[in-house]
């Protein structure tokens, strides 16, 4: 359906400001289908804002965002219709730093919710699919547990299964290990690595885990103060960065 030249997601001259504070400045970049991109950079560089705009949790101040060629949001053009936004958004899934599981639903209930409500899937089908997804993230036995009964790492794996249930073609991972105790980070990253090798989802990853950023990515983008400073292959950006600012950032996080 989508020919090779259509990017999975595309930012065209996007600016985001809160009052006088410019979080993103004239940003243009795109992700190809099935491409894995890591966004790295200091806090406040606008990485998470990119993910949040792609998920329509924030609107650009100016510029356009497109998903598989269809408009998702437009900072300058006419206001898009809700149904068009939802059609474009259907391609995108997101996993949050704070998991954001629904506390009043069991693990499997969390995973079944959107397929039933949004896709109109029958309950039995949704349950079977949800169980398979929980098995896949290693939590098949915890299907009936409530989020408050699960560890942070388990909750985040449920959140990943929940996002997968909507079969997104672009997965946004927003600092998914930042709220976890160090000993729980590994189990979450293992799940993401196996997803990366078993699926053809595009992934846009914001992380402070530099090893993960490097291993998961086809391309690494280094940002600072709302601008892309440099981008390139992981080995190139991490081993031989072109910019002195990238170099000093990498030095500071490795220390």
């Amino acid at each position: 359906m989508n020919n090779q030249s259509t990017p999975a997601a595309e930012f065209v001259d996007v600016t985001k400001s809160y009052g006088t504070l410019e979080v993103l400045q004239n940003l243009s970049f795109s992700i190809a289908p099935a491409e894995r991109v890591s966004l790295i950079g200091p806090s406040g560089s606008g990485k998470t804002t990119i993910l949040r705009m792609l998920m329509t949790l924030e609107q650009p101040t100016s510029g356009d965002i497109r998903v598989f060629g269809k408009p998702l949001s437009s900072g300058t053009g006419p206001r898009l219709r809700e149904q068009d936004v939802r059609a474009a958004r259907a391609h995108i899934g997101m996993v949050f730093q704070q998991f954001n599981l629904f506390p009043h639903m069991s693990a499997i209930g969390n995973v079944m919710e959107a397929p039933m409500q949004v896709l109109g899937m029958a309950k039995d089908d949704a349950r079977a699919m949800a169980q398979a997804l929980l098995d896949r993230v290693g939590l098949g036995a915890k299907a009936d547990s409530y989020p408050s009964q699960l560890s942070g790492g388990q909750q985040q794996r449920v959140a990943i299964a929940r996002a997968l249930a909507m079969k997104p073609q672009i997965m946004l991972l927003d600092e998914i290990t930042s709220a976890l105790d160090p000993e729980l980070i590994g189990e979450v990253l293992d799940v993401v690595h196996s997803l990366a090798s078993e699926t053809r989802m595009a992934m846009l990853v914001v992380t402070h885990e530099m090893g993960f950023a490097r291993d998961i990515a086809d391309r690494v983008i280094f940002m600072e103060k709302g601008r892309i400073v440099e981008e390139g292959l992981p080995d190139q950006v991490f081993e031989d960065p072109a910019s002195e600012r990238t170099r000093s950032f990498l030095r500071s996080v490795r220390r």
């Binding site: 998920m55 949790l57 939802r86 958004r89 259907a90 899934g93 704070q98 599981l101 959107a114």
Partner: peptide, 14 residues
């Protein structure tokens, strides 16, 4: 928690 609303949006719920 506003994160609950955001999770709903991320699942493309109305």
């Amino acid at each position: 928690n506003p994160g609950q609303w955001q999770a709903g949006v991320a699942l493309n719920m109305e």
